[in-house]
Simulated assay, not measured.
Amino acid sequence: MSIQLNHTIVAARDKAASARFLAGLLGLEVGAPYGPFIPVTAANGVTLDFADSGTEPITPQHYAFLVSEDEFDAIFERIQRAGLTYYADPRHHQEGRINHNDGGRGAYFDDPDGHRLEILTRPYGSGG
């Protein structure tokens, strides 16, 4: 068996709301609760398992999603409709812009818990 990422746990103040936020923007489904988790599964089978952080502070993480050009258009439209601030760079210096790294398109935005989310149409380093 080759090594593959199977799942990651995403800390949230409200796991159900955070799972709905991500799934709604990406056009994915929220899965049935499993133990303390609410999963959102990407097309490659990797699951983001949302879990309530309780009294623990949330350390923002970065989650990047490789999407097709058509998916980028649809997701970016949902980002704009939701009134979310987006950026061309991970440090949030280029507000209201997207990037064109490696001949593709990319955008960064935050979820309600401060996690930095990214959509990109070409993997970094893939050339242009």
Rank of each mutant, 00 (worst) to 15 (best):
L28K: 07
L84W: 03
I75G: 05
D111T: 04
A43M: 01
L5I: 14
K15S: 13
Y86G: 01
D52A: 11
A19D: 03
L120Y: 11
Q94V: 08
P36W: 05
L120T: 02
F109I: 03
T59R: 12
V30S: 07
I9Y: 04
I9W: 02
A42Y: 07
A12V: 02
G45M: 07
G104E: 07
S18A: 14
A51V: 14
Y63F: 15
D113R: 02
Y87A: 02
F76T: 01
S2R: 13
A82C: 09
E95S: 13
P112I: 10
L117K: 00
D89F: 02
A23K: 05
K15L: 10
K15T: 05
T121N: 04
E95R: 15
T55A: 14
D89K: 06
T47S: 15
P39Y: 08
P36T: 07
A12K: 03
A19H: 03
S18F: 06
V46G: 03
I75P: 01
D102M: 10
D89A: 06
R81D: 14
F21S: 01
D70N: 11
F65E: 01
D110L: 13
F21M: 08
P36N: 07
Q80W: 03
L28Y: 09
I75E: 08
P90C: 04
A23T: 03
F37H: 13
Y108Q: 05
S2V: 13
L84Y: 00
L120M: 13
A64E: 00
L22H: 12
G35H: 11
T55K: 14
L84R: 02
G103V: 09
L22M: 14
L84Q: 06
V67R: 00
Q61M: 14
Y87I: 00
N101R: 10
P57Y: 00
R116W: 00
F76V: 00
L28P: 02
K15F: 05
H115A: 07
I58D: 01
A19W: 06
D49A: 13
R78K: 15
D102E: 14
D102W: 08
D110N: 14
R105Y: 06
R13I: 06
F76D: 03
D14C: 09
G96M: 08
Y34Q: 15
A64C: 03
E69F: 01
F76H: 15
E69S: 12
A12W: 05
I38F: 07
A42K: 01
L5Q: 04
A74H: 11
R97T: 03
E71V: 04
A19P: 02
I75L: 09
Y86E: 05
L5W: 08
N6K: 10
R91Y: 10
G83H: 04
I9C: 10
L84D: 01
E95G: 02
L5S: 05
H92E: 12
E77P: 00
A43Y: 05
